[in-house]
Computed example of a mutant assay.
Amino acid sequence: MRVVIARCSARYSGRLNAHLPSATRAIMVKADGSVLLHSDGGSYKPLNWMSPPCTLRVEMADADAVDGGDGAPVARWIVQHDKTDDRLEIELFEIFADTEHELGTDPGLVKDGVEAHLQELLAEQVALLGVGHTLVRREFPTAIGPVDILARDATGRAVAVEIKRRGDIDGVEQLTRYLELLNRDPLLSPVVGVFAAQEIKPQARVLAEDRGIRCLVLDYEAMRGMDDGSSRLF
């Protein structure tokens, strides 16, 4: 990655036209060819950018013509998209830093508390579904996809569990379709449903309860053993 700190202006043309007046910014050139201009605010989003595939061409100013003012940039970057007419032109008037770093391959973001983690923890702590519940298996197959958990309650009745980080109406609809299929199996029927999530939206809860589906809110930190009750006041 190349990072340049410079006083610069920029103009974007193509599908839209936009202009950035002269100011000090960070310009990032990534290994994939993308070029991004950042200010010192505005969180993570760049002010303007060019996505790959694109080509960067650098034109250096004649040293005799540079006077250090805004009227004479020391360099001009022309970033042309390879497949469209989109173009980003950056004029650099004063360069404060210009560094390059080899970052290597990034392993990507590893999310904590994703549905796979919740499924694994709930399978290990199946008693959270209720006293006497036992695990049949995770990822129980159906014709339209696997049910996250199939269990049996204390009476031996089959229980299908759909797990989400945030439970919305779509998740309830998904579990409803699973239940319709599972209840056609005479070896499983009757099958009841449990909609489990770290957070369940009110509309989803109303729909689930209307369809006879029980809702279960999962405390991820407690399931991981991270919730120390001795450290809480209440």
Results as ranks from 00 to 15, higher is better:
G130Y: 05
E173K: 03
S13A: 13
G108A: 09
R205H: 01
G68S: 07
E102S: 15
P53G: 05
I27F: 05
P190I: 01
V3P: 07
V58F: 04
E209M: 00
P141M: 13
D112M: 04
L20Y: 02
R7K: 14
G132A: 12
A75R: 03
L128Y: 14
D70A: 08
H81K: 13
A6Y: 06
A10W: 00
D86L: 00
D106M: 09
F96S: 13
G14A: 05
T24K: 09
V35I: 11
R11K: 11
V217D: 14
G71P: 05
A116N: 11
S51M: 09
H117T: 13
S13M: 06
L233V: 08
H133S: 14
L129D: 10
A97S: 15
D62E: 10
A160T: 00
S9P: 09
M223I: 06
A63T: 07
L37N: 04
E173I: 08
E89G: 01
M223N: 10
I213V: 04
V131E: 11
E115P: 05
D82F: 00
M50W: 06
I144Q: 15
L218Y: 08
G132S: 12
E89N: 01
H81A: 00
L47R: 12
L181Y: 11
G130L: 03
T55R: 13
R184E: 15
